[in-house]
Computed example of a mutant assay.
Amino acid sequence: MNRSLSQDRQWTFMIIRGANRPVVQCSVSRTAIHVALSLLTFLIAALVISLVIQRVNIHQITIAHETLQQDVAKKDQLIAKMNEEMGSVYALSSQMKERMTQVTVLEKQLKTFIYSSGQPQQQKKTDASPKSTARNLSSHDANIAQAKQLHLTSVGGEFIQPTQDNTHNHNGTSAHTQSSSTTIDSDKVAQQWSQTFAQLEHMDATWKQWDKSMPPLIAKAERMQQQLDGTPNFWPTTAYRVTSQFGLRDDPFNRSQAHHGGLDVAGHNGEPIFAAAEGTVTASSRDNQKGNYIFIRHRGNLETRYLHLSESQVKTGSKVRKGQQIGKLGSTGRSTGPHLHFEIRQNGEPIDPLNYVSSPNTPNQK
């Protein structure tokens, strides 16, 4: 009975290996079979759960990867746009630098025209009449006031504030592998670009203002400079002792009163003689009365004459600058000693040179 119950709790398996071979009989308890089946069921369930979890994780990774790719694509587009705009900004910055360089040149020219021409040159007079002098001074003051309104200060240097984002060193491959913590702050970049463009717009507006206002002012200053350069108010020699002035005087040869048409400035043989203003040499010759002489034609039907020179250093037809050496002091022609006879004529008539020039306080003229 016990043996029969024991056999009922076991499963018997028979293995037939062939017709001529004996049958192999194996007995396995039902408990072992149940345990094996339970274990197999558990393994299958664990495998299924693992596959499900893996699929969910793969799906989440796929979604995250697609999101990251989209984010990276947007950043790449932003960087490409920034690189394109950086090229435009660089080109505009270079253009603005060239403009500011032109402005600096114009500024220097304007200062040279206005301020240098405004400096007194050995107490010289700029016109024969007080009214003309007042007009010149008023024009000069107006030029200075207009220059101050343009805020003529020094410019240059870099004009674009550099941004902190190193967009030119962007690497497309590394962008896909960077974490979200290293991505570009779009708001910050946009703010920096906004500031940069604001700077450029301000510079462009400033340039347009200068470009509109400065050329007429420069042209006016050039006309003023040309007028001053053509005015014979430069003392014509390093000698400075006036021995005979314009007007009636005792003639040293005839011992009688005669009209003297210029200034006699006593000096030493060989002292330099300068052009009182820019102009054209109309005569450079010699005769018994004037000795070696030079005539120069200037603006406003003015002419200057330099007589009794020991040497002439310019030729007829030559263009001369204001202050240029044209000869040397001497005592040729009708002369009693080394001196310069200096005349200024207007419309062919002699006028008092002291209306234009005055003797310097020192013998050396700059």
Rank of each mutant, 00 (worst) to 15 (best):
L354H: 10
W207R: 12
T62E: 09
R297V: 03
W235F: 04
V28E: 02
H151Y: 08
S335C: 07
D76V: 01
A190Y: 00
T282P: 01
M203Q: 00
N57D: 05
I344E: 01
K148S: 05
I33S: 00
P120I: 05
P272L: 05
H202I: 02
Q122F: 06
S256F: 01
W193F: 07
L51P: 00
Q54T: 14
E66H: 10
E107F: 09
L40D: 03
I273C: 01
L106H: 01
S186A: 09
G291I: 03
A219L: 10
L137C: 11
F342P: 06
K81T: 11
S129C: 07
L217Q: 09
P162T: 11
A266G: 07
Y90T: 13
G87Y: 05
M100E: 05
L106G: 04
F42T: 05
D71R: 10
A73Y: 03
F197V: 10
K97V: 11
G330V: 08
H151P: 03
G172W: 07
Q69D: 02
Y115F: 13
D211N: 15
T238N: 13
D352Q: 04
F295I: 08
A219M: 12
F246K: 08
Q123K: 04
F42I: 05
I33T: 05
A142R: 14
I61A: 13
W235A: 03
T104Y: 00
P216E: 06
Q69G: 02
K111M: 11
E271G: 04
K315H: 15
S256E: 14
